[in-house]
């Protein structure tokens, strides 16, 4: 006898009848991994915000080239100094500000664009929907790094704003597809039909009823996207088209250090470690978010 039926048919009612469940944040923080990741991210964010105010050296400040260049980590310079005698700690902190800000802004932009596009496609008729999604497919078909290289090498000196715009404008295709799929799935739900039967307009339906649903998966994607964009920005800066020196970013600090990996490994190591840590935390946080949001949709009996 082959059986593939969920054996707990009757029991699912239990969850339904249970007392009021914990709130979303409480569920999210229930997982120790998520707590740790969130804590680490908040600490890093606090550090890059506050440390520049108290650190003895400025990130661009060139100390005595003769005595202080390529100094290994010590009390005065916990992360050492680079080839032009700048304090690596000061640069990593300043670079973190830029890297995190660029990533956050561009992910926010991509999420907003993608959500709007996806909602529009999902609620549109078959033809408009097909058209909008083919455009997304086209966007996904172009290699993102290549596109960014081209766009960012056009101006002589790409500004941070351009970098954010470029990263945002090339990062929303996946979000749009995700949101559109979610809306298509939801729009046949009885409660959507009920809202239409009440005379709710399409725009109100999208804002009031559908947006809260699609925000959940968008949030998860955004957390993952955060990690991606930080790496991407680092890569672009490493290639020289991202954040322009002398302004620091984790990517261009790592590049500064790559030529000197033998002599002064600390230059690349510190920003590299920060990068890995932040990306890891983003991934763990995304997983935690997904689990917490999945638990919100209680099974039906």
């Amino acid at each position: 006898m082959t059986t593939s039926v969920t054996p707990l048919g009757d029991v699912r009612v239990v969850a339904l009848e249970a007392p009021r469940p914990r709130s979303g944040p409480a569920r999210l923080l229930a997982a120790p991994g998520t707590r740790l990741a969130l804590g680490a991210l908040l600490t890093i964010a606090m550090c890059v915000l506050v440390l520049p105010l108290v650190l003895p050296h400025a990130p661009h400040e060139q100390l005595d080239l003769a005595t202080r260049a390529l100094a290994s980590p010590r009390a005065a310079h916990p992360f050492g100094t680079d080839a032009v005698a700048r304090d690596v700690l000061a640069r990593v902190v300043a670079g973190g500000r830029v890297s995190l800000a660029v990533a956050a802004a561009s992910v926010l932009l991509a999420s907003a664009l993608g959500t709007a596009w996806g909602l529009a496609a999902g609620l549109a008729g078959a033809r408009i929907d097909a058209l909008l999604m083919r455009l997304v497919d086209a966007g996904l078909a172009v290699p993102r790094v290549l596109l960014l290289l081209v766009v960012l090498s056009l101006p002589r000196e790409p500004s941070l704003v351009l970098l954010v715009l470029a990263l945002g404008a090339t990062g929303w295709f996946g979000v749009a597809r995700l949101v559109r799929t979610e809306v298509r799935r939801l729009r046949d739900a009885d409660w959507v039909l009920a809202a239409r039967a009440l005379g709710t307009s399409r725009r109100r339906l999208a804002w009031r009823q559908l947006l809260p649903h699609v925000l959940a998966p968008v949030l998860v994607t955004a957390a993952l996207g955060m990690g991606n964009v930080i790496v991407l920005e680092a890569g672009l800066s490493w290639l020289g088209v991202g954040v322009q020196p002398p302004r620091a970013s984790w990517g261009n600090i790592i590049r500064d250090g790559t030529d000197l990996l033998q002599a002064a490994p600390w230059i690349s190591l510190a920003p590299g470690a920060c990068l890995v840590l932040v990306v890891l935390c983003c991934t763990v946080l995304a997983d935690g978010l997904r689990d917490a949001l999945a638990a919100r949709e209680l099974p039906r009996p």
Binding site: D190, W191, V192, Q209, P212, R296, R300, P301
Partner: peptide, 10 residues
């Protein structure tokens, strides 16, 4: 279906 006809987020 009383389970499908209400928006779970409202």
């Amino acid at each position: 279906d009383p389970y499908a006809s209400l928006n779970p987020r409202m």
